[in-house]
């Protein structure tokens, strides 16, 4: 698998993502600087977390104008799997590859902690290694993870089984108390129509070895790898 990892000025989870990809696939991703304009022949694109352009103007808004973005949009439309984590998710909504927007957390504070997530669908290149309905734990670390879509769009996401994860209680109930940041429907991650692009606020790349406190992030990279291998 040939993976590309995009770094913007202010990205700060790029190394963590590279380590996770390499630890699972055995190959380091190609480092792509934001101002480049070609991606080449890649079969997986990762947009890492961080604070591209310092979150100035609006999270992800300035990164969305980077030189590499048209190429990412073209690749995404061609069906190349794209994973956007945290700031990467924010960028994917800004460039229109995923619906909705990420607003300031309802509690107005930055939140960094492990949270339980309910797997809503195993039908995607990224969630194929999880059982629908099971509960996994991953860290969040964000100030602007409050996902918003209008009710029509939310219904569509539901109907089309495009919600990847929801914030839940330890036993898997999706309740208002478990909604850490005010997201509509407790949504923590969504898929595009063709189920090849995933944006999510939690950080699977920080849960890939036991020293991290768990390995629940690992199946995401493993399933992406195994599904890509069969393409």
């Amino acid at each position: 698998m040939k993976a590309a990892l995009i770094t913007f000025p202010g990205s700060n989870c790029d190394r963590d993502m590279a380590v996770a990809i390499k630890s699972v696939t055995g190959r380091a991703p190609i480092a792509v600087w934001h101002s480049e304009t070609t991606l080449g022949d890649v079969d997986f694109i990762a947009l890492p977390g961080g604070f591209s352009y310092g979150d100035y103007l609006r999270c992800g808004a300035i990164a969305a104008r980077s030189g590499i973005i048209p190429e990412i949009i073209r690749a995404g439309k061609r069906g190349v799997p794209i994973l956007g984590i945290c700031n990467g998710f924010q960028i994917l909504t800004e460039i229109g590859l995923l619906p909705g927007a990420l607003m300031r957390n309802a509690g107005l504070h930055f939140i960094c902690r492990d949270v339980p997530l309910r797997v809503e669908t195993s039908q995607s290149v990224f969630t194929g290694g999880y059982r629908t309905g099971s509960v996994v734990h991953m860290p969040v670390a964000h100030h602007d993870g409050n996902y918003f879509v209008d009710p029509d769009q939310q219904k569509r996401l539901d109907d089309e089984d495009r919600i990847a994860w929801r914030y839940c209680t330890k036993s898997g109930e999706v309740t208002p108390q478990a909604n850490i940041n005010g997201s509509v429907g407790n949504i923590a991650g969504v898929l595009n129509e063709s189920r090849t692009i995933l944006g999510m606020m939690p950080h699977p790349e920080r849960m890939i070895e036991s020293a991290h406190g768990g390995t629940d992030g690992r199946p995401l990279f493993e399933s992406a790898l195994s599904m890509l291998a069969t393409l």
Partner: peptide, 13 residues
Amino acid sequence: WEQYDHMVMADTI
């Protein structure tokens, strides 16, 4: 400390 990202760099053990 939940307002601090204490895990970025993925080496906080």
